[in-house]
């Protein structure tokens, strides 16, 4: 399976996402924002970072890039698309996911190992989790506050579109503790925390077993492999 990782000007977790893809057993393919070519990949990751320096709004200018036309088309055909952090902001700006992401309510950048609950396993990116499973992955953002109007929030909740919810602390003022969302079809998922930073022992969050041994994020990338195999 080949998974594309898009690099925008200002992306910074693209290499980490490629590494996570490789550790999960798939082949990472570097995709370039200025191209119209998805190189026939089976799934797409929009990585974290600060595309275009967060100018205008986080993810707004990247959402207008040539490659995003192709990503939006591919998402419409059911190709799995994952947006992590800035990638989530890009998905929201491209209207592939509902709501918006604004500056953290406390006004500060936050960087912590974050506990989450997996609320939806019916997506291309979460099928390897158990419903309700609690995981820990790093979180690092300045503008991760999820907001939506009351009607949108009710629809998101009613249709089970919340995929990850913050546990213990709400790190950025997100409404309903929402950390990640899916589209109705379940092929598009976006989240603020970083599963690609919790994929290899020695480099992940601390666990009770050992320092930096957390690899809870790997299941996100394994899910899309299983999803592809199930469809093959």
């Amino acid at each position: 399976m080949r998974i594309g990782v898009v690099t925008f000007p200002g992306s910074l977790d693209d290499r980490d996402a490629q590494r996570a893809v490789r550790l999960a057993g798939a082949e990472p393919v570097a995709l370039w924002h200025g191209d119209h070519d998805l190189h026939g990949v089976d799934a797409i990751v929009l990585p974290g970072g600060f595309s275009y320096g967060d100018y205008l709004r986080c993810g707004a200018i990247a959402a207008l890039s040539p490659i995003m036309r192709e990503v939006v088309d591919a998402a419409g055909r059911g190709v799995p698309v994952l947006g992590i952090c800035n990638g989530f902001q890009v998905l929201v700006e491209a209207h592939l996911l509902p709501g918006g992401l604004i500056r953290n309510d406390h006004g500060r950048f936050v960087c912590r190992d974050q506990r989450l609950r997996v609320e939806s396993t019916g997506t291309a990116w979460t099928s390897a989790f158990r419903e309700g499973q609690e995981i820990v992955v790093p979180l690092k953002n300045g503008e991760g506050g999820f907001i939506a109007d009351a009607e949108t929030l009710a629809r998101i909740e009613g249709e089970g579109q919340v995929v990850f919810r913050y546990l213990d602390v709400n790190p950025n003022g997100s409404l309903h503790d929402i950390a990640g969302l899916r589209n109705e079809r379940g092929n598009v998922v976006g989240l603020m925390p970083h599963p690609e930073h919790a994929v290899e022992p020695g480099f992940g969050p601390d666990t009770t077993a050992a320092m930096r041994s957390g690899t809870d994020g790997l299941a996100v990338f394994r899910s899309v492999l299983e999803h592809a195999l199930a469809r093959a």
């Binding site: 604004i102 500056r103 309510d105 006004g107 506050g145 907001i147 109007d149």
Partner: peptide, 11 residues
């Protein structure tokens, strides 16, 4: 920013 939504920058 929409009046009914948070404006952390303004705060």
């Amino acid at each position: 920013p929409k009046a009914e939504l948070l404006d952390p920058q303004g705060k």
